[in-house]
Design a protein around this nucleic acid. Structure first.
Ligand SMILES: [Mn+2]
Ligand SMILES: [Mn+2]
Ligand SMILES: [Zn+2]
Ligand SMILES: [Zn+2]
Lengths: 143, 143
DNA sequence: TTGAAATTGATAAACCGTCTCAAAAATGAT
DNA sequence: ATCATTTTTGAGACGGTTTATCAATTTCAA
């Protein structure tokens, strides 16, 4: 049994319902995608170039968008690019970013996450993903 | 006293600190910007074409980005374009975004803001700005 | 008023993501 | 396995948005 059997099942069910086909590329891309918390099409293109040098960038975009439709991924605009978040990934974290030196610190805060859920449900929303970025100066750059 | 004296002061202070100059275009664009809650560069370009047909699109982009650095605006990538939010219009707020229909709900949560400060200081950071976006399905799109 | 430094506007270029289309692959029926 | 049909793929063209370039203009402090 493959490591990603559950998600592979979700994909196959979606394919079946929409007269789409199960291809080598879709399997390859799903496998790579599920190892990430989030990734851009370009990053995945370079990552997979080693395994399959002929895999086209358009196929990556098409497939990541397919994953969104199948409920496996969530597209999010980040900077100038689109990040595809892995919905099933549990290693969630947020970021502190120093505007002085570019240093990035990852953090997790359960209380904030809980309050986010509260805000969402108070407004009738169900959260799929979120993004929290704190910009400021690290102790080194403040002096 | 102009209607936007306070924000004009913020801009001038930023300009002074960074050896930048106060120009007719920057004044014109700030005036137009502060009348909006949020706007794209392209929208502002067409809006101002009547007042100054020679105002260039590049100048609009440069100036809106300048407003972000001065803390008057906040850039937000939405769809394929960049929205520039007027921070003074409603004060600070964060966003709930429906991935189904694109609906955006603004919210404020003091508890989250306070916890953000805690996370930052625990890591030796001083926060300048932050961004919190919750993506999910609104009550309508969930059914 | 003068001159160094910053800004502007026109447009070229970069960038990202989608579209096009002929060739290849997948699927289901013989 | 072979075939016919449908979908997918890969390469590159394309379109929309934002940034870079650069000569001419403007700002502003001396
Ligand atoms: Mn979080
Ligand atoms: Mn906030
Ligand atoms: Zn720093
Ligand atoms: Zn919705």
């Amino acid at each position: 049994m493959s490591k990603h059997a559950k998600e592979m099942g979700v994909l196959k069910e979606h394919l079946g319902k929409h007269q789409l086909k199960f291809t080598r590329q879709r399997e390859l891309i799903l496998d790579a995608f599920l190892k990430q918390e989030h990734i851009t099409a370009e990053e995945m293109y370079h990552q997979l170039a080693r395994k399959d040098p002929h895999l086209g960038l358009a196929t990556i975009y098409r497939t990541l968008n397919l994953f969104c439709e199948a409920g496996l991924a969530q597209a999010r605009h980040f900077g100038t690019q689109t990040q595809y978040d892995n919905i099933s990934h549990k290693g969630h974290h947020d970021h502190l970013i120093c505007t002085g030196c570019g240093k990035i610190v990852e953090f997790e805060n359960c209380d904030i996450e809980r309050l986010q859920e509260e805000v969402a449900s108070r407004n009738g929303f169900t959260i799929q993903t979120h993004r929290l970025e704190l910009y400021g100066l690290c102790s080194h750059c403040r002096h």
